[in-house]
């Protein structure tokens, strides 16, 4: 599904190197988790994959089902099936949540050569998906993420994911700012989307999210590289002993 080879990235303005040769392969149907200390490059990886400005790729490649992501515009990546659930979902005053979702959905369908979804079909679909995430009609009417609580914003991300049905989902610290109940709700939303044709890359600081979304593979990232890869037990080890042991082992 996703294949990243020797990815090197620096900040455009500061000339500061963030990623120093990331190698990662995520197979369809699997859930991979990336853990790592602050500043290890986890969020940068997610932004670079989604196509945010401000980063320069100096070396390497990132392919989604064989197609080079790094050469695509952000909207092309989305149409190709990539989705990033933001760590900090963006507020857009003046743009209604429903309009936003429908515009996004139809833009992706258009890019893929599909017909636009009718207003009726769209409404039916969004109501059904929103209900499962306990997102009420009022939230849908409000401008995108404006006045939403932290938990509401994250649920809104998962709603977008559920509606857009991407093939490769990247969740950037989706657990941050969530209480126990919200975490359960968000995780259930993610788990409902697990499918043989879909893959997940879950970026997190903590094991607790992985109690709800069980990963097949866990990677530890440090200093711009994947330094260790293992099974779910690796996350438990981090939870218990912190990163220090693993990092000293690697170095």
């Amino acid at each position: 599904m996703l294949e990243i080879n020797n990815l090197h990235v620096k900040l455009e303005e500061e000339d500061k190197v963030i990623l120093r040769g990331v190698d990662l392969k995520v197979e369809a149907g699997s859930v991979h988790a990336i853990m790592g200390p602050n500043g290890s490059g986890k969020s940068t990886l997610s932004y670079v994959l989604a196509g945010r400005d401000g980063y320069t790729v100096t070396e390497g490649s990132a392919k989604l089902e064989g197609a080079e992501l790094l050469e695509m515009e952000p909207e092309e990546r989305a149409a190709a099936g990539l989705f990033l659930a933001f760590q900090y979902p963006v507020e857009i005053p003046g743009v209604g949540n429903m309009t936003f979702l429908r515009t996004a959905m139809n833009a992706q369908r258009k890019a893929r050569g599909q017909d636009e979804l009718s207003a009726g079909d769209f409404l039916k679909l969004v109501r059904e998906k929103a209900k499962a995430l306990k997102i009420d009609a009022d939230m849908m009417k409000r401008p995108v993420n404006v006045g939403f609580s932290g938990g509401e914003k994250k649920r809104n991300e998962i709603l977008q994911m559920a509606m857009l049905e991407p093939r490769m989902c990247i969740l950037d610290e989706t657990d941050s700012g969530l209480d126990v109940d919200a975490m359960k709700l968000v995780s259930d939303g993610v788990n409902a989307l697990r499918d043989a044709g879909r893959a997940f890359l879950v970026i997190t600081h903590y094991q607790r999210l992985l109690d709800h979304i069980h990963p097949d593979v866990v990677h530890i990232m440090a200093n711009g590289r994947i330094v260790k890869t293992g099974g779910p037990e690796l996350a438990l080890e981090v939870e218990k002993n912190g990163y220090a042991d693993i990092l000293s082992e690697v170095v």
Partner: peptide, 22 residues
Amino acid sequence: ALFYLRSRGVPLKQAQSLMVLA
């Protein structure tokens, strides 16, 4: 906000128009 819209598949020009109308 522009990047957020584009990351959801909205093409640049459409995203800019949406922001202007907003």
